[in-house]
Design a protein around this nucleic acid. Structure first.
Ligand SMILES: [Zn+2]
Ligand SMILES: [Zn+2]
Ligand SMILES: [Zn+2]
Ligand SMILES: [Zn+2]
Lengths: 132, 132
DNA sequence: GCAACAAATGTAATGTTATTACGCATGGAT
DNA sequence: ATCCATGCGTAATAACATTACATTTGTTGC
């Protein structure tokens, strides 16, 4: 699911935009930033985002309808990621916690629930913004 | 923040609709169900939902843009709730896990992050739907 | 090479979710 | 009575996402 992916032109453009950004972007913001590269419609962005999230290169932040480029290698091999989202500056920190994953897995097994996608998103204020 | 709240007429109607439902509802679905009670505009629903979520009587499910009436007493006294959302039948189970809360709290402290609202949402297939 | 098929793209239209702006009504406090 | 906070009604708009259909591009088998 990870390894090496040959990205198409549109996927490359969307991934590049997200990678260059200093925080999460909405699909429409990505669209605006790619207008001069020929993008005209939301679907071009959404289609690329679908693939990129499938590949694990991009994560969707459910609570703010935005997307972010994967932060690092700690991501791989984990079923459920967590995100800390600063509501002041928009910065996002991606992390994972074995224990959290495990506990949610236990709950699922005990309740016969078969998980496919888990979202853990903490909204609040980051250290930098608290200092300021 | 919990105890007893005197709900206004609109809040009562929205809360009643959510309580009577067998699963989460979108704001616009609530609006439709309250048309014959005089509701005309989305804002009437969103305003009521804002208060109800403040009071802890209703929870917002970030990953499906929907709202659900609080399932029970285990909810109170907990900072972060978790939801298991069945993508087949739409049923939602609300639960909380001390260990999960604690681990996320540890991460926040260690990173100087001050959380205000945490969303934990597991999407998948519930036991009933798996059996069927 | 060429047919057949799958994947990706372009474009328009539409559907869904949420907010902004403005004015009015109500109820309690001074 | 005046002030102020809260809630309400309505219209307009913004923000987010999908459906539908036609076309292009790339791959596979022959
Ligand atoms: Zn990642
Ligand atoms: Zn910040
Ligand atoms: Zn609850
Ligand atoms: Zn189910």
């Amino acid at each position: 699911m990870n390894a090496h992916h040959d990205l198409t032109k549109n996927q490359e453009l969307v991934f590049g935009t997200l990678s260059a950004a200093d925080g999460p972007l909405s699909a429409y913001t990505i669209l605006d930033r790619l207008r001069d590269r020929g993008f005209r419609a939301p679907l071009q962005v959404y289609r690329a985002l679908d693939k990129l999230t499938d590949y694990g290169l991009v994560h969707r932040l459910e609570s703010i309808n935005s997307f972010v480029a994967c932060a690092g290698p700690h991501c791989h091999g984990h079923g459920s990621l967590a995100f800390a989202i600063c509501e002041k500056c928009g910065q996002v920190e991606e992390f994972s916690d074995e224990t959290v994953e495990q506990r949610l897995g236990v709950w699922s097994r005990e309740h016969g629930f078969k998980p496919t996608k888990t979202a853990i998103e903490i909204r609040g204020t980051c250290a930098a913004c608290l200092a300021a």
